[in-house]
């Protein structure tokens, strides 16, 4: 059976709650997305996100409880994302979870959002073999980590500047393709072809696992300006080349990290893991290198609370519960 965990997630612009049993069985997963709210600002506005979280959090929790056919009293553990993310947004979830756990007399578990993203994989594939190399790519993060055992993450490399999703957003905004940038660029790229234009693959030191995407962003902007002045610009072809360049770097570094650590398993996670070119390219390279690649279903790639509960399961088993003074930590960048 396993324990029933309520997961709560408010680190960015999704208010989410989920009930998960034993770390793998998702009984319900409610997500209230604010993507339409932030669209007119071209990105997530922290204060507006927090305002929506405080308005939506209880309805979302109740929705998750109802959808699971459970009652609040059935919850055995309350889990919440407390790092990293927007501090005001995190604090809504952390404070609510704290009060709820206290009132229900249940343990509270504080979860790292990036670890939670990786655990979306275990919800879909419970029997993944560890150790693994994890690539977490989202609007806020680009990290490669070595995962020797459950709940243990050793950072191998991160982005020095823009996160992958951030680069998608910025380039999409510049090209007038809309928000959020990931799906917008993927859509445009489908109507074009990579290779018609040429953008750099910024690998930095090929032996290291750090990323940098601001150079690619600048190169894209400069190329577009030049193409437009020449009057030959195809936004779809440029989107396709930008996407390919970014994906190539992610794939290259990830496969290299897997070889270097000698793992057989690669876990892809985060909002950008929804990108189909990334999934396909990484699957192809992984297969060619004898690696097993896992990625979550689309519904679990973006922020949700089922992954928070799944991650909390292992912390709970190890007795890693949080005190009444647990705080939110916005700037924990590492896995």
């Amino acid at each position: 059976m396993g324990e029933l965990i309520l997961g709560i997630e408010t680190s960015c612009d999704e208010t989410a709650a989920a009930l998960v049993r034993g770390g793998t069985e998702v009984l319900s997963s409610a997500v209230q997305s604010q993507v339409d709210v932030h669209r007119r600002f071209g990105g997530v506005v922290p204060e507006i996100a927090s305002r929506h979280h405080i308005a939506n959090i209880v309805p979302v929790v109740l929705q998750a409880v109802d959808a699971a056919g459970a009652s609040l009293r059935d919850i055995e553990v309350v889990a919440v994302t407390n790092r990293p993310g927007l501090v005001g947004a995190l604090l809504v979830g952390v404070s609510l979870a704290k009060g709820l756990a206290y009132a229900l007399r249940r343990p509270l578990v504080a979860v790292n959002h990036l670890h939670a993203h990786v655990y979306a994989n275990f919800l879909a594939h419970p029997h993944i073999e560890l150790p693994a190399v994890c690539l977490v790519v989202s609007g806020g993060h680009t990290s490669l980590a070595y995962m020797p055992a459950h709940g243990v993450f050793e950072v191998m490399g991160e982005t020095r500047d823009d996160a992958a999703g951030e680069a998608f957003d910025k380039v999409a905004r510049f090209l007038g393709l809309g928000y959020p940038g990931g799906p917008a660029i993927e859509e445009a790229a489908r109507g074009g072809a990579p290779g018609r234009y040429r953008l750099p693959r910024v690998l930095l030191d090929p032996q290291e696992y750090e990323f940098s995407f601001s150079g690619l962003k600048t190169a894209t902007v400069n190329l577009w300006r030049r193409l437009q002045s020449e009057g030959t610009a195809s936004v779809n072809d440029l989107a396709a080349e930008f996407q390919a360049a970014l994906v190539d770097v992610l794939v290259e570094k990830t496969v290299h990290a897997a070889r270097h650590t000698g793992v057989r398993t690669v876990l892809l996670a985060g909002g950008v893991a929804a990108n189909s070119r990334l999934r396909e390219a990484l699957a192809e390279r992984a297969a060619a290198s004898g690696l097993q690649l896992f990625y979550p279903p689309l519904s679990l790639c973006t922020d949700n609370a089922a992954m928070v509960a799944a991650c909390a399961h292992h912390l709970y088993l190890r007795g890693e519960t949080a005190g009444l003074d647990v705080n939110a930590h916005p700037a924990v960048k590492t896995l």
Binding site: E47, V61, A97, G99, Y102, A103
Partner: peptide, 19 residues
Amino acid sequence: SFTGLRIGMALGKGLALGA
């Protein structure tokens, strides 16, 4: 304070909901 208000209110919501 926007954040201060939300910390107290979210805590109150959690306590009220659970109790």
